[in-house]
């Protein structure tokens, strides 16, 4: 399943020497913070790549840069091989149709005063305006089925507070799917969920990859879930990718001392119980 990292120029999303400096923009200035420093990343079609690191490693900044929410200080982002320029207005909307973001906190990312039906209709109205009336309603039902929120009628009228964390995150995923994106950027999509529900959401995302060929960037601090879910893992430390490779090699034969530290620090019953 793992595609070669160099999946050709037509890879859905690719970043080259991506750099983001905060504070004084001038490189080399004393107060500048290099949140992301020269990150190369390729997300092939239908590929799941995990970006693993601790808080402050720059992994969320990478997500914001790839989502077009921020401009890189230097380096570039390529969507299907074409360089992404300044994103404003229509260009931004066109871009978000291809690249959708899923946030960590499904409570904060869903408006509490709107029903699930409203949230999904809005996504369709924005990204697929050609769907109107009954067609839009059918599409809403299709989205709910796709994220396995069934029976659909029960969820259409529900407000976010009536749903569990896992169900809310599924609504957020359905909303992202409304745009029919080529890429999902999932920034800690399960870390706020109850442990028993996390795998269900990850399995759903994997299923979407399998059936729809969506490429997924999975950003997480949990290297065990990255091993479970991703084809390839990139380990980030202080703004740089320090190790990358297929999930098994990175987790079973880590080479960089930081990757080893991450793995040694993760609680792992097998290692403790003799």
């Amino acid at each position: 399943m793992t595609e070669s990292p160099a999946a050709g120029p037509a890879a859905p999303l690719r970043a080259e020497a991506l750099t983001r400096v905060y504070g004084s923009g001038a490189l080399g200035s004393r107060h500048a913070v290099h949140a992301v420093a020269g990150v190369d990343l390729t997300l092939g079609a239908g590929e799941i790549v995990a970006l693993v690191g601790e808080s402050g490693s720059g992994k969320s900044t990478v997500a914001r840069l790839l989502a077009g929410l921020e401009r890189p200080t230097s380096g570039r982002v390529l969507l299907h091989g074409a360089e992404v320029g300044t994103l404003r207005g229509r260009a931004f909307r066109r871009y978000t149709r291809q690249v959708q973001l899923i946030f960590q906190d499904p409570f904060a990312s869903l408006n509490p005063v709107h029903t699930v039906r409203y949230v999904l209709r809005r996504s369709l109205a924005i990204h697929r305006p050609q769907l109107r009336g009954a067609a839009r309603d059918d599409a809403v039902r299709g989205l709910l089925e796709r994220v396995r929120l069934t029976p659909v009628d029960r969820f259409l009228r529900a407000f976010p507070h009536e749903l569990s964390g896992g169900q809310r995150q599924r609504v957020a995923i359905a909303r992202a799917l409304g745009a029919e994106p080529a890429v999902l950027l999932a920034d800690e999509p399960v870390s706020m969920l109850d442990v028993s529900l996390r795998l269900g959401v990850l399995d759903l995302l994997r299923d979407l990859r399998d059936t729809m060929g969506i490429a997924i960037l999975y950003i997480t601090h949990d290297i065990a879930s990255a091993r479970y879910f991703a084809d390839r893992i990139l380990v980030m430390y202080q703004g740089q990718v320090v190790e990358s490779g297929d999930s098994e090699s990175v987790t079973q034969r880590p080479e960089h001392p930081y990757t080893r530290l991450l793995i040694d620090s993760a609680p792992d019953p097998e290692r403790v119980v003799r």
């Binding site: 109850d194 442990v195 028993s196 996390r198 795998l199 269900g200 879930s225 479970y228 079973q252 097998e270």
Partner: peptide
């Protein structure tokens, strides 16, 4: 048993873990 099966293992074989169906 189900709770233990909600944590994918970091070492050893990559076994299938399931989480828990339904809602809390």
């Amino acid at each position: 048993h189900a709770l233990l099966n909600s944590f994918p293992p970091l070492q050893g074989p990559r076994r299938v873990v399931t989480g828990i169906g339904g809602a809390p």
